[in-house]
Structure formats: C-alpha cells, structure tokens
Amino acid sequence: MTSNIKVEGAPLERSAFRFFKVTSVLPALPFLLIFGFFFIYPITKLIYVSFMSNENTFTFGNFQTAFTQPYSTGFVNSIKIAFLSALIAAFPGAIAAYFIETRGPSKLKRSLAMMNGVLANTGGVPLAFMFMAAIGMQGTLTKVLKYFGIDIYAGTFSLGTFTGILLVYLYFQLPLMVIVFSPAIMSLRREWVEAAKNLGASQINYWFRVGFPLLFPSFIASFLLLFASGFSAYATANALTVGNLPLTPLQIGGLLDGNVSASQLNLGKALSVVMILISAVAVIPYLIIQRKAARWQRR
C-alpha cells in the first residue's frame, strides 16, 4: 500500500519492500500459531466431525437427531432461560448503571465495579453452593421467609428446576449488565443535556430525542451479551440439577463424559455446532453494535 509509493526512495526501502511479505507477518506469527493450534483447529475439527457418521462418512444425521427429543427441549429450555434471565436483568441493571455512573462518587463506582466483576466472573460452582445454603430446602433464607409466612417450597419450586436456575442466573446476569452497560452511560456527555436544554428541550424531550436513542443500541448489545452468557453457562446448572432439567450445555457435557450414551458418536459435536450458531446470532450483532457505538463514544 503505502510502501508502493515510497519504493522510488532509498535502496534501503527497496530492500524492505522485497521482504515485505515475510516481515509483515513474522512478528504476529507466535500469536497466530498458538491461536490457530488451540482455537481455530479445534473449532474447525469440531465442525468437520459433526458431519461424520459412526463409519466416518459424511452425514446430516447428527444434526437431524440434534433437533429431536430430548435435545430439542434442551435447546428450547436453554434459549428460554438465556432470554428470560437476560430480559429480567437488563432493565434493573441498566437503571442501576445509570444512577451509579451519573451520581455515584468515584470510590463507590470503582468498588462496585470490582464487586460486579467478582460476581459476574467467579460465578459458577461457588454460586450454586451459596444458593443451596441460602434457599435450598433447609436454607437459611428459606427458613426466614417461612417464619414470615412465605413458604417458597409450597409449590413446585426447587433450585434444580427452571425457576430455580433462572433465579441463580440472575445473580451473575445483573452485575454483568451493570458492567457492560456502564460504558454507554459514561459516554453520554454533559454537553448534550445542556445543549438540549438550551435549545428548549425539557428533560423528557431530551431523553426521547437524544438520551434513549443513543443508549438503545448499547442496551440491545448488552442484552445480547447477557443472552449469550446465560445460554452458554454450564457450571451453575451442572451443580444444581441432577439430569432433571434438559439444557443443551449439560447434554453436551453428558455426551462428552460418556455418562449419557447415544447411538451416534458425533451427536455431541453437532449439538456444539448448533450452540455456536445460536451464540453467534447473539454475539456477532453485539460486536457490530459495539463497534458502531464506539464512533461517538470515543472521548
């Protein structure tokens, strides 16, 4: 590109041009090799194998089975739990992010950011045990609520059911929402509120004409990321359920461990590929929206 223009210059640059191909890749080689070997290759092989029958011939059979019972229910449940947990967490998370970012003193902001980070990431197994201790059958909170006349186990509730898992998921989804949505709030400039006021806009006018339109893409993006996070979550559900709630990640884990046997050896791979596709439907728009929003979020 630019080197084409400079070629006429010193002989030094001409020789640099000769080695253009090698030198332009060499420094990135370690990264590319490791990324290729530990990521691209496994995922490519996964996709390839998902089309293999037990006799190593090409087949769509794995995918056909993936959309029958009990796997189709697994997908439905996984999508449902991801969607609901993202939806329920998104609004309170966005509002919390707004008040913390616009009104909180900076020390509070930083310590909340840290706490949210721990909650959103440590998650998994410890979270599951914590909820067992809190609202399990003999849990402390269960007993306290019972004392006040609320028996959460009066109905069909249990931690291992859809509702139970949903509740535990919210515990990491809400902090995650605060984390991913805060940058959008931070990039709302004070000048915009003031300019709007100056031009005759009331608070409500400002929000509907400027504030909400600017935050909306980031809100959708955050929702999508929460969806992907809820959809892929494995550890919490694995610790809380005992095979009674069909969720795709658990089914894949079962097939991989050999705990569950299937007549098709590569069924788990096909399930994984479908999972990747569903996850991509959420994550790729997320990435695109983030990139677009970055245009006005820069400084």
Binding site: R189, E191, W192, E194, A195, A196, K197, N198, L199, G200, A201, S202, N205, R209, V210, P213, L214, R295, W296, R299
Partner: peptide, 17 residues
C-alpha cells in the same frame, strides 16, 4: 429550556444520533 438563548459549547455538543 424556556430562556430562548442560543449557546455554542467548546466542542462535542452536537447530538451524535
């Protein structure tokens, strides 16, 4: 917002949306 004055700020005051 009821004052009817036009103001130009230092920078970045245009609505990006």
């Amino acid at each position: 917002h009821k004052r009817n004055m036009g103001m130009v700020f230092q920078a970045y005051s245009l609505f990006p949306n």
